[in-house]
Write a protein that binds this DNA or RNA. Structure first.
Lengths: 146, 146
DNA sequence: TCGATCGTAACAGTTCTTGTTACAACAGAT
DNA sequence: ATCTGTTGTAACAAGAACTGTTACGATCGA
């Protein structure tokens, strides 16, 4: 599959909007944002649509329209972004039910469900510990030393 | 996409082989294993082929052929299985390079790389803490109470 | 030599992602 | 009221991954 870069796209968008907002440009068009990502504005609008559904950004239509953050970037964790994108689980159980007559087939699904839940929890802990503001700060710091 | 159930398949296979081995059947055919998963033997052989490349199982061809574990199930972690399958990273960076003239586009990639590495590390810690023997034991325990 | 099984290629069907074009809906500006 | 820029969304193509199937050569014990 084309690897999943939706989280990268969304975090990039929010970091860029946060920087622009700090510089006084509170409202940005999808075309302006797309320029930073070097991609198509529709890609950006799709991503922004999901972020809006989660309440992280708001949009306005018509002339002079655009997108703006609804919260400060220090209150948006990468986990919030991840959840806004509605990611599917990392690991799936059997696509079709295993043989329930077999002792393993009979009992393994709840066990793996628990394992996968623990993994998911660990991922959420990691993502929840970083905010968009953190990412932006590190990004700008890296720029200085580079 | 069809969600990724390869880890589920592989762990199921190994747990089933471990139980059979404990019962005295050290060598199993892909067809026998496939019966427990209620799937096609080729699916099982594909998975077993990856596990063999990682040294977790061995195969013999010809008459009376089949597959057997090369280690005790208590020495195979779910992480070993995961690594044997050569999983691709959970999150990817931008599919095409962002605009490097933009401060965010310029510096964000190493930052996200670090974030994703931390997530991957957390996943590995979780998976590394459980063995195939653990999964089998819990599976059989669940069967008794069910 | 026979027969069972591995090992692997080829193909179909499904789903997801990225990227593109197109166009209606909207709302401020003139 | 009309113009204009932007959102919002649909439709489509190309590419990739996974599951599942059929097919068949390679291997090796009996």
């Amino acid at each position: 599959m084309a690897a999943n870069s939706r989280l990268t796209i969304a975090v990039h968008i929010l970091a860029w909007m946060a920087l622009a907002s700090r510089r006084g440009r509170e409202v940005m068009t999808s075309e302006e944002i797309a320029a930073s990502l070097a991609t198509n504005p529709v890609i950006v609008r799709r991503s922004l649509g999901e972020l809006r559904a989660a309440g992280l950004v708001a949009s306005r239509r018509g002339a002079g329209a655009g997108w703006r953050l609804t919260r400060g970037p220090e209150s948006i964790t990468v986990l919030d972004v991840h959840d806004a994108l509605g990611a599917e689980p990392l690991f799936a159980l059997h696509p079709s039910a295993p043989n329930l007559e077999c002792p393993v087939g009979h009992g393994i699904r709840p066990v793996l469900t628990e394992v996968y839940a623990a993994v998911d929890e660990a991922v959420r802990r990691e993502l929840g510990g970083r905010t968009v503001a953190d990412v932006l700060a590190q990004t700008l710091a890296a720029k200085e030393t580079a």
